[in-house]
């Protein structure tokens, strides 16, 4: 049974981490979560990014956030990746499976998955 004591233990573990995270966040993954994105399947895409980033141990440098309508509804689910000093990368028609590959190859490996980007549609 999930208990509040378990939650208190999480708090204890997080205490040190929070201090490190302040001021970092070199990479930002932004998932479009307006009506268009949600209807097209953005919820599992967001869930996959959150899970994969954490599984890969990248939570310290990558933040996964949500935004409204990006304005290209026909390409939803749309995911934008912002990195300091680099051009924004826009991934379109995303799925949870594609998200896992983007985390492994782009976010972790540094190599953009060109075939999922908007330029290739």
């Amino acid at each position: 049974m999930k208990s509040l004591a378990e939650l208190a233990a999480i708090k204890e573990r997080m205490k040190d981490k929070v201090a490190i995270r302040e001021g970092s966040g070199a990479m930002r993954v932004v998932v479009g979560m307006a009506t268009c994105g949600i209807a097209a399947g953005a919820r599992p895409v967001l869930g996959a990014f959150v899970e994969e980033v954490n599984k890969a141990g990248l939570a310290e440098k990558v933040t996964v956030t949500q935004t409204g309508c990006i304005g290209i509804c026909q390409y939803e689910p749309v995911v934008e990746i912002f990195e300091d000093g680099k051009d924004k990368v826009t991934y379109v028609k995303m799925t949870a499976e594609k998200a896992a590959r983007v985390v492994a190859e782009h976010i972790k490996g540094g190599k953009i998955v060109e075939e999922y980007t908007i330029g290739n549609k």
Binding site: K2, L4, L7, A8, R13, M14, V18, V50, N54, A59
Partner: peptide
């Protein structure tokens, strides 16, 4: 709000908290 009382300044958005 009840979870927040336990978590203090740790965000509800932390992966481990969401998993909980």
């Amino acid at each position: 709000a009840e979870l927040r009382q336990v978590l203090g300044d740790v965000s509800l958005g932390e992966f481990e908290v969401i998993e909980w």
